[in-house]
């Protein structure tokens, strides 16, 4: 079920991804920012909840998921902002053979630049906190399956608010309600793993949401870009 529009002619899609990776590489110093922000937010929870080890362990899934969600939301604004400022967003909309395809690749590049390092950091932190093996695996699986929705739906929000004053806050207001199903099933999967009740159904939901987002979100992003540039 490969959507034809998404498979832009190979050189174009490769060029878009190559450009995003080059830009990522050129500001690789900033690549550390999302994971650092994630650790910072995750560290806040114990101060608020108190040192009770048992309670903290029970709330670990929520802490990780909310920190990942916030770190991703904050990084969404950069997806199109610099392109809009230097005029390359107009070139993309006008010249790209398949704009939805380009938007899908933009979302992929965002996933590689923010959620992916966050998942690595979550893996590191969960081993540091020596969570039980099945909790840790549930956490990583649910993050890998669920965070694509953050990037894909987030790209729609980023397109709709590109160039808008106070865009970051508006962007969060637009997309957070749409992130809630992922948060429910993501944190739910980890919580069920800690209670060692049967998980698995959550993974299917997360995977389903990601596939739905992967097929529909790029078209909404493309329409959003055309609406913003019109």
């Amino acid at each position: 079920m490969l959507n034809p529009a998404l498979v832009a002619p190979r050189p174009a899609s490769f060029a878009i991804l190559r450009r995003e990776m080059l830009r990522l590489y050129r500001r690789r110093g900033q690549l550390i920012q999302p994971p650092l922000f994630f650790v910072l937010v995750a560290v806040l929870f114990p101060f608020a909840i108190g040192g009770d080890e048992h309670l903290l362990r029970a709330l670990a899934p929520a802490t990780v998921w909310i920190s990942v969600l916030l770190a991703t939301t904050l990084s969404l604004e950069d997806i199109f902002r610099s392109d809009q400022e230097d005029g390359s967003l107009e070139q993309l909309v006008l010249m790209a053979k398949s704009l939805p395809g380009a938007c899908a690749l933009k979302a992929l590049a965002h996933w590689l630049s923010t959620p992916a390092p966050l998942i690595a950091m979550a893996a590191l932190m969960s081993s540091v906190h020596d969570l039980e093996a099945d909790t840790r695996s549930a956490l990583l699986i649910s993050l890998v399956l669920g965070t694509p929705v953050f990037s894909l739906v987030g790209t729609i929000g980023s397109a709709l608010t590109v160039g808008v004053r106070g865009g970051a806050l508006l962007l969060a207001l637009l997309i957070l309600p749409l992130y809630i199903p992922v948060l429910i099933f993501g944190a739910g999967a980890v919580r069920n793993a800690t209670l060692s009740t049967a998980t698995g159904s959550e993974y299917f939901f997360l995977a389903g949401l990601s596939v739905l987002a992967a097929t529909l979100a790029p078209f909404a992003t493309a329409a959003g870009l055309r609406a913003r540039l019109s």
Binding site: L160, G224, A227
Partner: peptide, 11 residues
Amino acid sequence: ARAGAVLAVVG
């Protein structure tokens, strides 16, 4: 209105 239309359909 056009941006809102996209958001409403996504919603």
